[in-house]
Amino acid sequence: MNILKMIIKTLKLLNSNASPWTIAFGMAFGMLIGLTPGFPLHDYLFIFLALFFNVSIPATLFSMLIFSLLSLLLTAPAHALGYRLLVDTPSLTPLWTQWYTMPLLPFTRFYNSVVLGTTLIGLICFIPLLFKIKFLVVYYRKHLQQKVMKWKIMQLLNVGNWLNVDDKLMG
């Protein structure tokens, strides 16, 4: 039920006047948070950033959901990447050792192969995803929105109700 609500809100958001950048940043932050298993320290930083800056919360939550599911598929490559950097790259060992003894950094769980791998994948994908989402939102609104809004299911879901209170909060 909550997932359905989240999807409805995301659709409403797409069809709203909200800035495409807001939606794109929300999706990008959600990806960073959703990809990493658990909630290491840097996830709290991303959550804080998502709340502090005026990015779309529904988009962030929707993205977290999608990418946390996707991260399960990414576990193997993320582990391979993290393991390669943590163990198989001796030149980085001093860096990791230093981080391991630095304040707060151990709480990021960077020493876990999957956390490091997914975080790096997330950071690498952050900018491309940001632009891609922004492009997709603009494209949707320009070419697809009218057609989609005519779908009965969209009317049933009352996606076009602009007076939804959540829009004001999460716009």
């Binding site: 582990h79 993290g82 393991y83 990791w96 192969s113 999957v114």
Partner: peptide, 10 residues
């Protein structure tokens, strides 16, 4: 670890 491995650095 639960997912992947934890590498500790002495």
């Amino acid at each position: 670890a639960e997912r992947g491995v934890d590498v500790s650095f002495t």
